[in-house]
Design a binder for these strands. Sequence first.
DNA 1: AAAACAATTGAACAATTGCTCATATAATAA
DNA 2: TTATTATATGAGCAATTGTTCAATTGTTTT
Lengths: 123, 123
Amino acid sequence: MQEDRCLVSCIHEDVIQKITGVSEPNEYLERLAQLFKVLGDPTRVRIIYALMQHELCVCDLAHILQMSQSSISHQLRLLRQNQIVKKRREGKIMFYTLADDFVTKLFVLGMEHVRNETYKEYK
Amino acid sequence: MQEDRCLVSCIHEDVIQKITGVSEPNEYLERLAQLFKVLGDPTRVRIIYALMQHELCVCDLAHILQMSQSSISHQLRLLRQNQIVKKRREGKIMFYTLADDFVTKLFVLGMEHVRNETYKEYK
DNA sequence: AAAACAATTGAACAATTGCTCATATAATAA
DNA sequence: TTATTATATGAGCAATTGTTCAATTGTTTT
């Protein structure tokens, strides 16, 4: 925690008042963080990217990503719980698709940024 | 890894061929995951949300989030390294702002989704 | 010069995460 | 029924993460 002296010298109370006023309910910010967190893993990104192209079964995904069926299944569960993907059974096979097109929008937007990055600079 | 029998019975080779063809360079997908990962933490989301309202110093942020100045500083470093925020010195004080308006776009889009969520369903 | 202060950073530690392995479930085939 | 197959899941473990604490840096004040 910051000390008391800090309160006197550096905090810009006026600005803080203004910000606190417009503050988004913390619950939404929490959920937003959770959403990005789910998207913030290479395996899950690759799963989502594959599903952006076509509906796929667990086995296909394991084959495409060259990973175990178990780990793919674990990740799909997470994606399901967060309503990123949904599944449909056809006999023994489970087919997965994106739950809606909003993730695609996020991906397109994020990809734009990532493509324009030059290199990670560290100031 | 999946076993050989799986290759015969369940993998949809035609679809996989098609997907592998349009595959985004893995480097970009990796960076996209990294981007979402940085955004996927409650503290960092709250920092970004505050900076969306106004330029702020480390001390202000610590005050607003009710967290230690040290942990805010650590998080700001991460955000800086990923080009989410940038800083500007004014005497002893460091002022932080969002590096560009792209994160705001991502937030607005993500927020739309999060607001419409009913509850986490678990199938 | 020394003291004060805003911010940064490295080390340490608990908590979380993603994978593997083994097992369980659910649908189909024999 | 029993065997096979596709997927799901729980436990365990190594790796990563976010915070705290202590020390340091860079700037201003005295």
